[in-house]
Design a protein around this nucleic acid. Structure first.
Ligand SMILES: [Mn+2]
Ligand SMILES: [Mn+2]
Ligand SMILES: [Mn+2]
Ligand SMILES: [Mn+2]
Lengths: 229, 229
DNA sequence: TCGCAAATTTAGTCGCGACTAAATTTTTTA
DNA sequence: TAAAAAATTTAGTCGCGACTAAATTTGCGA
């Protein structure tokens, strides 16, 4: 039974590993909003516990045990998010903060009951995959909405749950998992993006927002892409 | 936002005050399963925070602010117990341990949603009254099942949720709030008690068990009592 | 390749909430 | 009512997880 702190560190390292192969002390510190010295401290502790491999000055990497533990916390987190949304109607921009605390205090039995209640769901409200009890998790290769070109059409698969204000905005615009978006216009030089949501309203998204949304190209698009080749 | 420790101490003091007027350091320490020195330490901190009045060597008493805070935690605890039982089918002997941890991490908004979901309930699964949001709580004058005499009939109002094994046993025997019990036989000298549950099976309860069940005399009994006078 | 800036680690400290051992106060009992 | 016992507080320590300031290492640009 690792402390809530250890759990949060492992989760953070896991999440950072999803983008960068090796996680730096500074990245970890920034992600958790603590000092770099504190991060070093905990990294050394995690290394002592064989939950990470630490190459001093060069970064940190989860061990098999560490990754397993991270996935357990993430499973708790995402199940709780979905449960709060489904059972209690907690709005999707609020579930993350709530789950961030509850994830550390529920028993395995409660975890199982929640999973059962939800029918063993595969995704949390933001489209993030929920790891299985056995520690397996999907790693779908999505692309950022920001990387699309004008004229392309895509299906939203996941949105970042880090910023409640962004989430609220996305919800209002209908930018939620499974929604269809067409890139109407694309400004050059990392400029903003104009999208049509479903077959309805059009909205402008700046880089930060567009980078918080991950999509897959819709079927017709993929065909087109193949044809070009 | 007081720490979970502070919350647990306040709750413990509140619960001890329900029986003894003034709470001793030792009683508090035993209740929380910590050393007396640790209790003294925290008592001094709570006194500094104006949450208790401390008369050194003589005991501790909640201030108005301390009682209010205790009731907030207790409200969380009992709402969570009932919610886990109702929404997820967590058995009544398990809800207490689970709520003991979750009570410290839910937001006010989540508290409200849970209360709403449950229809603003008055009692937790063990029959304990749930304080209102405004800090009001019933203080019904029940009597212990152990204090009844042979021939008396009563309705169970509340059972102690402290011991999961006892709770499991009570449940198996049908000794739950609103059940009717008749005292069939009463051994002298604090001896065990024989009761009929509902109009069904008979069971024997020793002192500890019988003292964990609180009842009100059933209507007919009260009449009899009046008549005698 | 050298020097500098950035990243990282080390050293030392703090608050929290626990502990044990010892001192003190209160209560009980002979 | 004085001594013994019990309860309580004080004194000092510890692990945890944070911090700042200082030292060290790394890597990059001139
Ligand atoms: Mn967390
Ligand atoms: Mn999420
Ligand atoms: Mn608690
Ligand atoms: Mn209860």
């Amino acid at each position: 039974m690792p402390s809530a702190s250890v759990q949060n560190y492992l989760k953070a390292i896991y999440q950072l590993q999803e983008t960068c192969e090796t996680v730096t002390t500074t990245a970890l510190a920034q992600h958790l909003d603590i000092s770099a010295a504190s991060a070093t401290n905990m990294i050394k502790k995690l290394a002592r516990l064989k939950l990470v491999r630490h190459s001093p000055y060069h970064g940190v990497e989860l061990s098999t045990a560490g990754e397993k533990m991270a996935l357990e916390v993430i499973r708790h987190h995402r199940l709780i998010e979905l449960f709060l949304a489904e059972a209690l109607g907690v709005p999707w921009e609020a579930v993350h903060a709530e789950a961030e605390k509850i994830e550390h205090v529920i028993s395995e039995d409660l975890e199982d009951r929640i999973a059962d209640f939800l029918g063993d769901p595969g995704r949390d409200p933001h489209g993030d995959p929920i790891p299985t009890k056995t520690g397996f998790v999907e790693r779908p290769a999505y692309q950022s909405l920001f990387d699309l070109n004008a004229g392309q059409s895509a299906v939203i698969r996941r949105v970042s749950d880090q910023n409640p204000d962004h989430l609220k905005h996305f919800f209002k615009l209908g930018l939620i998992p499974d929604a269809t978006v067409d890139v109407v216009q694309r400004e050059p030089f990392q400029g903003p993006l104009r999208v049509r949501v479903g077959s309805g309203s059009e909205h402008t998204l700046d880089e930060t927002l567009a980078r918080s949304i991950w999509v897959t190209l819709s079927a017709t698009q993929k065909k087109l892409f193949k044809a070009k080749k």
